[in-house]
Design a binder for these strands. Structure first.
Lengths: 346, 346
DNA sequence: GTGCAAAACTTGATCGTTCAAACTTCGGTT
DNA sequence: AACCGAAGTTTGAACGATCAAGTTTTGCAC
């Protein structure tokens, strides 16, 4: 309706005709200003701005064979790890991508195979130049398939248990995070620090366990298995795990997730026992409750991922680069779950 | 490196030559199969599948002047309403969009003006066919600007306080949500139900307040203002609000957000007082804590939004359509904040 | 003022698809 | 057997940009 009455958007040709130069000159002013005489450049630039001319993405993409788009899968809603971190990561990634001249195309997929299908289709149709993988696991086929198909990507997450993998990745050193948490609790005077984590076998979970284990005093102490409780993620299981850790004599607890930490802390609260619980991922929930947590440096991760991806896409690629970032311990002492003062100080 | 050794993707022309038909016939098999003789169709289809041919998005977009892309702004991370609901909404929107043949392009913006700039640029460059607005407010200039620029959109959120607005929107009836919550508490026997909400003036907040107000017994009772506490969103302010409501003699509380509800519930817990608190938005936090909350029907919203937007974009547009959806009350009775039994039953 | 390379600018071709119009084939009348 | 319209298929042009190779202009030395 209104669309018909609106003036047609200018193109290179119409604009060039107006100014009295060739289309290529206008194109050069936009893409390679150094090739144009300053006086001409000024004149063209003025017309470009006045007319509101913007190059057509489709035409440019068609000619250059680069869409300046990156694909990203949005995981199902009920994905623990993802949900906690994804929204913040997504925001960072979109912002940093924009700074590099790229945009993000979203898609959803129920499983990894569907994700691969979507990525293949997008890449083959020239809708994306590359993509970012998240939530890697030990049985992950995605890197090899994408490599075989010649689709460029950077993974947020290490190739767990795949020593042969050579693709670029960025990850956060979860072990360093739990180590920091454990060290902090030790500095408060705690000597029996429990670990509440996921069942063995997940790379992420085992990594976080190892950070706790090596920071105990003495490192890897013989009763470590007594102080370790491994359950599925959830507040219920977290609460149950807490009871077992209390029986084991734990006076403080390091957790693999905020969900577990929340379950544990509220169980303790209910039982009238006050003891420090540190979660993982610094979720909004933890923040709202004043619960301490290990925070992943998502902005740095986004920066590193895009730097690597852009390097690959512009053929400035060196050997596959890998980046391991260190998380931060966010201490909080408010709300119902605040960390109480240490039982005694050394 | 590997890219060079990979076979060139087939195009309409190369594929058509291989089969021995014209490019247009192949194109027709894909876009208008009924125009092609069944036997030819079979033959072409087979070749299309075997070759893995996929139409180039860029070429198609250039020719048809439709990108099949929708723009969506990702709000800053520290946005209360958005964060709570955005990730789920986003997932739904992406899924439903895909079902309609559209994809989502993400972008970030610090404020509404930057969002408008981005949308204008995207639209002018032909990168998007339309967009979805979220987080509408009374001072929102976005609808009028987009309308003036001829950019199609559907808003998730009513044009608060702008009776002249005629653009299509989809929204959730917040008042109906708080009304449900209030009615439920009344059914438990509560007679002094408090309202803990945001400062007056926000459309969303006032709407939710009205639902509570009209469901009291008697509706709009004279001491309603005593039972109303309005504070900025946050757990701290929620806790403070709770104390005031307790002084006012409230035995149950309806909140405008899960954040407020959490603050209120934990303050009560701390004070050793058990009383029902119902939040809003059914966030992960509420779920983890076993707190009851009003849930927005995000999938239905996504469906309605896309239906309206697609109708507009394909010129099947009727008059601007508006949809008001009813939220659900999610009752939970577990965790530290479970709703206790009513003080006395009628 | 001629020559000549560098700078500045222009032109033709092309990316891969769809639209519009043209052409060919075919079954059925008359 | 010639004719006709519908069905099936092909061809030319266009979308709007960039690349590559062309042409013109400029500045400067001799």
């Amino acid at each position: 309706m209104t669309a018909a009455s609106l003036p047609q958007r200018p193109t290179l040709v119409t604009l060039a005709r107006q100014i009295g130069v060739s289309r290529q000159t206008v194109s050069n002013v936009i893409n390679a200003p150094h090739l144009v005489k300053p006086s001409t450049r000024e004149r063209v630039l003025k017309a470009v701005i006045e007319s509101g001319y913007r190059p057509s993405v489709a035409a440019r993409t068609l000619r250059t064979n680069r869409s300046m788009m990156l694909g990203l899968r949005l995981f199902p809603i009920n994905n623990g790890i993802t949900r906690a971190v994804m929204d913040r990561f997504l925001h960072q990634l979109a912002t940093i991508a924009h700074a590099h001249g790229y945009r993000l195309t979203l898609f959803t997929a129920a499983d990894d195979n569907e994700e691969l299908d979507q990525l293949l289709e997008l890449a083959q149709r020239g809708a994306i130049d590359g993509c970012v993988l998240t939530d890697t696991s030990a049985t992950d086929r995605r890197p090899e398939v994408l490599s075989a198909e010649g689709i460029q990507f950077v993974s947020f997450g290490r190739p767990w248990g795949q020593p042969g993998a050579t693709h670029p990745w960025v990850d956060v050193d979860g072990g360093a995070g739990t180590a920091k948490a454990t060290a902090y609790l030790r500095s408060l005077g705690h000597e029996r620090i429990g670990f509440l984590g996921w069942p063995a076998g997940s790379g992420v979970g085992d990594d976080r366990h190892s950070g706790w284990l090596r920071t105990l005093s003495p490192p890897g102490r013989t009763d470590a298995d007594v102080l370790t409780v491994r359950v599925e993620d959830g507040t219920h299981s977290g609460a149950q795990g807490m009871h077992r850790l209390l029986e084991a004599g734990a006076t403080a607890i390091v957790c693999t997730s905020d969900t577990l930490a929340l379950g544990a802390a509220s169980a303790a609260l209910k039982a009238g026992i006050a003891l420090p619980v540190i979660g993982f991922d610094d979720t909004p929930t933890a923040a709202a409750l004043g619960m301490s947590s290990v925070a992943q440096p998502l902005e740095e991760a986004a920066v590193a991922i895009l730097e690597a991806l852009v390097a690959i896409l512009t053929d400035r690629a060196v050997e596959p680069r890998t980046t391991l970032l260190e998380p931060d311990l966010v201490l909080r002492a408010e709300g119902p779950f605040r960390i109480p003062q240490p039982p005694e100080r050394n």
